[in-house]
């Protein structure tokens, strides 16, 4: 059986409702005036146009890194699908004929609907081939199939997003990832 909550005994000015309303309005107006005078104090950001700076260790969407010659670093050693607790990584290995690396992934799929973003795949990778440093958290699609990120998508992930993200970074350089370099294009 629920017990009635003890009620606080109100003082006389509190019991007169109007006084408290006016006190609240004063508080609101003081914030309005402070914000107008000092705009850096804004708590709200205009989301699609502005981004919160993510922590350096933030685990976003996976990307596959490449060697200087453009080939994917991954050698399909199967360490990441082995460690993956969500069993969301599927790799089909193949033999690279002219490559000293011998082995490469013909297919490398990550089912983002199953991924739990634990980052074990990055930890397990002996070749630094998979990273979650993209800081991308908007992972969405219209179909389940599109939520499976494949090899070429994950290789080109940063390329596709660079121009869009760069505008934000130019406007707010403090939000750019550490070590981010801008293209030589002058700011209009």
């Amino acid at each position: 059986m629920a017990l009635p909550a003890p009620r606080k005994k109100l003082s006389t000015p509190e019991s007169v409702y109007l006084v408290e309303v006016i006190k609240g309005m004063f508080l609101t107006m003081s914030h309005v005036i402070k914000n107008i005078l000092d705009q850096d104090r804004f708590r709200t950001i205009e989301y699609p146009d502005m981004r919160k700076p993510m922590a350096a260790r933030y685990r976003g969407a996976h990307r596959l890194t490449t060697r200087p010659d453009g080939k994917v670093k991954c050698v399909a050693c199967m360490c990441c699908p082995t460690i993956c607790p969500a069993k969301c990584i599927t790799i089909i290995a193949g033999e690279a004929a002219d490559d000293p690396a011998e082995k490469f992934p013909i297919e490398f799929d990550i089912d983002m609907l199953r991924c739990i973003f634990c980052g074990f795949c990055v930890e397990a990778c002996p070749k630094d081939a998979i990273r979650m440093d993209t800081k991308i958290y908007e992972i969405n699609a219209y179909t389940r199939q599109d939520m499976v990120h494949n090899k070429s998508y994950m290789i080109n992930l940063m390329d596709g997003l660079k121009p869009e993200a760069e505008d934000v970074y130019r406007a707010h350089p403090e939000q750019a990832p550490a070590g981010y370099t801008f293209d030589e294009k002058p700011v209009a």
């Binding site: 050693c77 360490c79 002996p126």
Partner: peptide
């Protein structure tokens, strides 16, 4: 080269 070695 354990990552590409079938014996691993």
């Amino acid at each position: 080269d354990c990552p590409i070695c079938d014996q691993s």
